[in-house]
Computed example of a mutant assay.
Amino acid sequence: MSELLGRRDCIESLRKDLVDLQGAILDVFSRTGPVRFPSWKFPDKLSCNLDMVVLLGQYDFMEGEDSFNQHSHIVLLELMIDR
């Protein structure tokens, strides 16, 4: 399983899933208002205040940067949990 960590297709799939999930969350928020609880990943921030555009831009695949890509993969998985 570790051979998948940091692969371009895995990171792209996680990013797409996060975008889809964030869209669903915003749809719910439009009806109920934001849920004000601390973020699991960033406990100093409210989960409804995370800027997903910035986070997705920060944790993207970079050609030839294996350790960064593995880190990005893990952070994206953690963001899935956080959402």
Rank of each mutant, 00 (worst) to 15 (best):
Met1Ala: 12
Ser2Asn: 13
Glu3Pro: 00
Gly6Lys: 10
Gly6Met: 12
Arg7Glu: 04
Arg7Lys: 13
Arg8Cys: 00
Asp9Arg: 10
Ile11Ala: 06
Ser13Asp: 13
Ser13His: 09
Leu14Trp: 04
Leu14Gly: 06
Leu14Tyr: 04
Arg15Lys: 13
Arg15Leu: 07
Arg15Ile: 09
Lys16Trp: 06
Asp17Gln: 15
Asp20His: 12
Gln22Thr: 10
Gly23Lys: 06
Gly23His: 06
Ile25Val: 13
Ile25Tyr: 01
Ile25Thr: 08
Leu26Met: 12
Leu26Pro: 02
Asp27Arg: 15
Val28Arg: 05
Phe29Tyr: 15
Phe29Val: 11
Arg31Asn: 08
Gly33Lys: 01
Pro34Phe: 05
Pro34Asp: 01
Pro34Glu: 03
Val35Glu: 10
Val35Trp: 09
Arg36Cys: 09
Arg36Gln: 02
Arg36His: 03
Pro38Gln: 08
Pro38Cys: 04
Ser39Cys: 02
Ser39Trp: 00
Ser39Arg: 00
Lys41Arg: 06
Pro43Asp: 03
Pro43Leu: 00
Pro43Thr: 06
Asp44Tyr: 08
Asp44Met: 13
Asp44Ala: 15
Lys45Asp: 11
Leu46Asp: 03
Ser47Met: 12
Asn49Asp: 15
Asn49Met: 10
Asp51His: 06
Met52Asn: 01
Met52Ile: 15
Val53Phe: 09
Val54Phe: 14
Val54Ile: 15
Val54Tyr: 15
Val54Gly: 11
Leu55Gly: 02
Leu55Thr: 01
Leu56Gly: 04
Gly57Pro: 02
Tyr59Leu: 00
Asp60Gly: 12
Asp60Val: 15
Glu63Met: 04
Glu63Leu: 09
Asp66Leu: 04
Phe68Thr: 06
Phe68Ala: 05
Asn69Ser: 09
Asn69Tyr: 04
Gln70Cys: 14
His71Asn: 03
His73Leu: 07
His73Gln: 02
Ile74Phe: 07
Leu76Met: 04
Leu76Val: 00
Glu78His: 07
Glu78Phe: 05
Glu78Met: 10
Leu79Lys: 04
Ile81His: 11
Ile81Asp: 09
Asp82Gln: 07
Asp82Phe: 04
Arg83Gln: 13
Arg83Met: 11
